[in-house]
Structures are given as C-alpha cells and as structure tokens.
Design a protein around this nucleic acid. Structure first.
Lengths: 339, 339
DNA sequence: CTGAAAGCGCTAACAT
DNA sequence: ATGTTAGCGCTTTCAG
C-alpha cells in the first residue's frame, strides 16, 4: 500500500497532525529537530500526499479549471491565441503549487458541475461570449474565484481580464485612415451589444469620427474567424467591392485568409488592398508580405489572470474592476497608401 | 452546505449505498421505481458527486494527466502539433467521463509525484525524449496506464503511439530524389540512438540507398525546431552550401523558417531550392508557395492514445506492441526539379 | 433488491 | 511544541 501520513508519523514517533503541519509549512509551532527528522523520513520513504484526501478534508483542491467552450461532439477549438495562454497559465500556477484542469464546456450548466465536482478553487473562462458570462449566477459559481479572459461582461462574479480592444482597433483604423484609405472593410465574427468584437468595432468607428472620414466608406462584414472564411471573403471582396482599398480583420488568422483570397482574385497586397490583422501571432511573420497587425501582450494577460485568481483565493482580495492591458500597432508589410 | 449522497438518500428514504449504486450505473440490483425516484431527486436538488471523496474511497480519480516537459521557469512549449492533440484528447476523455489535468514536468521525478498525488488513472506523455521514457521504472509508474506519444522507447510501462516516421521521411526523400535532387540537406534537432528524429533520419537514408544515390550528397544538420533557427539555417545554407538543391526539414515550422532564410539570401523556392516539411499543420498552406510536406493524422493519434489508455484502465488490456499510424506525402508548391 | 459497518488519507478546531 | 477528536463524502465488503 502507499505510504501515508500516519506511516511517517509512526516512524517519526509523533502524531499525524505534526507531520501534516510540517508538510504544509506551518512550521511555526514545531521544533526544528522534529521538522528535520520528519522531512528526512518523508524524503527517504518517498511520501507523496494524497491530493484527494487533502481536498476532501480541506474543502479546497488547489486545482484551477480552464473552461473552454466545446460545441457538442467537437474537440476544443484551441486557437493559437489560446495556446499561448494555456502555457503561461500552467507555469504560473505550478509555481504556486496549483494544478490546471482542462475542461470543455458544451452546455453552460456544465460550468457548475465542473466547479463543484472537483471543488475547484478557481477557474479561467476562455472564449465565452459575454452573454454567457452574464448568465452565470451565484448558485453556479459558489465561492470559487472566476476570471473571464477577454470578457466585457459586467458580471461581478467573473472578473474580466482583457486587452484594450477599443484602442487597439482605433490604432489599426487610424493607421489605415492616415495612409489615406477611405473605403475600409471591417471583417470579424458577428457581434452583440457587448464583447471583444463589439469593442473593436467601436474603436474602428471612433477612428473614422476622429479623422472626419465619412462613415459611409466603412463596410462591416460578418466573417467567421477562420482562414477559410477569410479567404472566401477576400475573393468576394475583390469581385464585388473593388472600391474597398483596405481591410481590418479582427484576427490574424482571418487576415491571412483574406490576403490569400485577395491574391487569388489577382489583387496585390498591399499594392491594391491593404490588410491589417489583430493579435500578432507568430504566423503573422510567416506570411509574405509580413502582416501588419495589432499586438496584445498575451503572456501578461495570462499572468494577470493567475495573479487575480490567487489573490482572490489566498488573500480574499476581490478587485471590483476589470483589468485592461494595452495594445500596440505593429507595422509590417501589408499596409500602404492607396493608389 | 453542499448536497451530499446522504441527503439524497434521506429524501428518497433509502440507504446511501443505493443512491451510490444508481449514480454509478450499477442499476442491475435496484428496482426501476427506486431508480426513477432517486434520479428525480438528484436532478431537482442539483446533486453533484464529490470527485475527491470518490477518488479517495475508490482509489481511482478518473483523471488522466497530460504530462509535458517544461524546462524550469519556462512556460510549456506547446507546439501547434501538440495543440491539436490536446483538443482531441480532452474531447475523447470527456466522452468517457474522464478529466484531463495538464502538468508541466521540469524534473523527471515529478512524473511520479504527479501520478501518485492525484491518483491519476493514466497519463499521456507528450514531447519527452526516448531516453527519458526509458528511465521510467515500476516504482514511478505504479499501476497507472501510460501512453507515450511519438515515442520509440521499448519501455513496456509506457506504450508508444506514433506515426510511421521512417516511412514518412522515406516518402519525402524519395520525392526529392525522384525529382532529380542529389544534394539534399536533412535539417532537424539533434538526435539520439532512438526517437522520432532518428527514425526520420533512417527513413531519409533508406531512400538514398533505394535510389542508388550517393550518400555523400546528403548533408545532415542539427537545427532547433523553431522558425528562427530555420531561418538562420536557410541563410547559412544559401551562402555556405550553394550546391544543396533541396532541404528536408523534420517539422513544418522549421521548413517555413528555412524558406524565409533562403528567400532573404535571394534564393528562390522552389526554383533554386526545394523545401519539404513534416506534420502538415495548417500553417503549411498559409505560406507562399504552399509547403510540400508529410502529413500525419494527428487526431487519430490522439484518439488511439485515449482508446489504449481506457482499454488498459477499464478492461485491463495491455497491448504489448506500440501502435504505429501511417504517413502520407502532400505535394504542394515548394518542391520542383533542380535546374 | 437493499442496507450496515468500516474506512480511504487527510485536516480543522480544540485541547494540553 | 504536540496530541485528540471528529469528521470531509464516498465506496467496499459483507449481510441480509
């Protein structure tokens, strides 16, 4: 059978409680000699605490859930943007001796189930719509710390961490307008009253107002955030809207698809049409010409999420305002003056 | 307080045991009426079983660990190839009501810790070297099911699941040789006696032998599997080895870097130098020209891993041979006849 | 078909 | 500075 606390206690000639205290770093009330002895025995017997027993007794699991939407039978759609977040989350959590459980969510009530079944101490919501986050009630959440990435929901139960999407889009649109473009397409997924895409739309719009450019020059299109959809959109645009000289896509992957569609239709980027993306993923520099885009600091976003989560768990801090990080324009090769 | 088994039992007027049996689908020995009543109460009270209590009592967690190397302070390096695996693993496991815990491994003995601390029922080892897997002993592994992705280790404790790297590389090299290339560079990370890269090297070599091409024409270079390293390699190659007319890179990301380095040095792909990659990631089609590469069925690989894991756990099956999936050549635009 | 007893390995809250 | 008591919520085993 496995080595237990009791075994260690017996061998050290102390009570299980003392061993428990030593293991958990509550060493204030144990003599140094005892500590050393216990630690030595733990080491040589290769004792590993049972996480389930600990969770059960302490009502806390040291597990953080990473909850990602998963439409039914589909496998998780993990975008490159998400990937980097996962890596950083795991590292930051491990540093603090927490663990990461990845869970696809098909129906919203699975959130509650995931949270309670494992006694999660906290969770990160990644890729949910604001409307979904709005719906999360106290019954669902309980006392767990919740952070929603890229959310603009006002729900106080799920603190938002996002980058400044409004300003990022404004930067992109301003760049295009300053180059002299007046017929610009906004390509992104369909959006609602609130949410990341909405913010980017508003930023885009704001740049037009600021530049005194006629809003009639803007064309707003709903395009799925995939390479294929972007490509299709690029092709159509070339044929049906030859007057458009620039495209702002709400994601790099989409922008790259648009570039390809445009190229297939025989339109040069950036000679005839400028394209600008969003995210500054690695792939932005793999394409030719390299993609001009808006960069957000993804590792920082993930690190902030963890800091918030642990702050809430260990120090009962509950910041009341969402955290917004900056965004910067990265000029590369896909934008130029219109001719 | 949370709703427990006991609460449900009390309300249904039966013993906790009966409820437990119903919940766990051991319904053979319970009357239909009782089942219905219990299920209804469970539903309306919103009962969610405690996973920690269950793990503790049953000595099985229904958690599968996803163990990924993480060098010290670094965050997990999750390659695009890994990403797809994660998505599929999660979905397949969720289907069977298992959970995925993601864990970075800095020192090899953390494997044992992860396994035992959470009572993992099984684990997937992703991205480890064969030599590391070789070192895993029974003490570490215990009775958990272990699957090593892309491993050629002979260690019976960690069953290998991989695609046919030898044949894949052979396909690639043969393609290049048939086009007429005789001076070909093999670019990949440094390799050992065993492992994925070794297999690809051997396949590459085998194609030379088969074609009766002089092995002196091959140039084997150790290049890190990153875009940056590939780019550097491409530049150097153009300058120092102008006689090389084709490159086989062991990863798409590397191949794309090589293409860029070559382009920067003024050498046309595929006009002057052909490039072929490995993996067939999405990005292979985003670059210009589109990358010729060797495809492996990543979702299938992940699905097989899960099948093996669950087979071992639930039916005590222990296949004694590693599973090898196929590989196919995808001809696109980066390979042509040498001039 | 259903139940009672015992315990999984640990920790919180008080003792001493 | 250390020990005692009493569970946490579930399942296993053995009896009905």
């Amino acid at each position: 059978m496995r080595v237990t606390l009791k075994d260690i206690a017996a061998e050290a000639g102390v009570s299980p409680m003392t061993v428990s205290n030593v293991i958990n770093g509550k060493r204030a009330r144990v003599s140094q000699a005892t500590i050393d002895r216990i630690l030595r025995i733990v080491e040589q017997r290769g004792y590993v605490p049972s996480a389930s027993a600990r969770s059960l007794a302490a009502r806390s699991s040291r597990i953080i859930g990473l909850l990602v939407p998963a439409a039914g039978e589909d496998s998780l759609t993990i975008s490159p943007h998400t990937v980097e977040i996962i890596g950083v989350l795991e590292r930051e959590l491990r540093k603090h001796d927490y663990h990461l459980m990845l869970r696809g969510i098909a129906r919203l009530d699975e959130v509650a189930e995931a949270l309670r079944s494992w006694n999660l101490d906290g969770a990160v919501l990644l890729g949910f719509q604001d409307v979904e986050i709005d719906r999360l009630g106290p019954a669902v959440v309980g006392r767990v710390a919740l952070v929603a990435m890229d959310s603009y929901s006002e729900n106080p139960l799920a603190l938002g961490v996002r980058s400044d999407d409004f300003t990022g889009a404004e930067l992109a649109a301003r760049h295009l307008l300053e180059l002299g473009h007046r017929r610009i397409a906004f390509a992104g997924p369909a959006f609602f009253e609130t949410g990341v895409v909405r913010q980017r739309y508003e930023g885009f719009r704001s740049a037009f107002a600021e530049a005194g450019a006629p809003w009639e020059g803007a064309m707003v299109s709903a395009v799925e955030t995939t390479h294929a959809a972007g490509r299709e959109f690029g092709r159509l645009l070339a044929v049906e809207h030859p007057e458009v000289t620039a495209v702002f896509a709400t994601a790099d992957i989409l922008a790259i698809g648009v570039m390809e569609g445009l190229a297939e239709a025989g339109r040069a980027v950036p000679g005839e049409v400028s394209v600008i993306g969003y995210d500054d993923l690695d792939i932005a520099t793999y394409v030719t010409p390299k993609l001009t885009t808006v960069a957000q600091d993804i590792p920082a976003k993930a690190a902030v999420a963890v800091r918030l989560l642990l702050g809430q768990i260990t120090r009962e801090e509950h910041p009341d305002a969402a955290i917004t990080l900056g965004a910067t324009l990265i000029e590369r090769g896909t934008t130029a003056r219109p001719r």
